[in-house]
Amino acid sequence: MAKGLVKFNEERCKGCELCVSVCPKKIVMLHETKLNSKGYHPACVIDIDSCIGCANCAVMCPDGAISVYQEDVEKSDE
């Protein structure tokens, strides 16, 4: 399965948790201690190795805080 990478712009995040609710791997959560300058706990990924790069989190983010990248997977005949 393709491996993904998610980048959060923590300053833009408003902690609404829409990304948390739609992650199929349940690896997005709000940071427990960190606060951004707006006073919200920003979202972060707890287990980036499980990320499949589906971009559901970024599609649901109303504040453009998330970018998603995917590792190029070479197609085999198998």
């Binding site: 971009a55 599609v59 995917q70 190029d72």
Partner: peptide, 12 residues
Amino acid sequence: MKPVFEYTRGML
């Protein structure tokens, strides 16, 4: 790594 989703330049 290829981008799957980046914030559009259509938004300021």
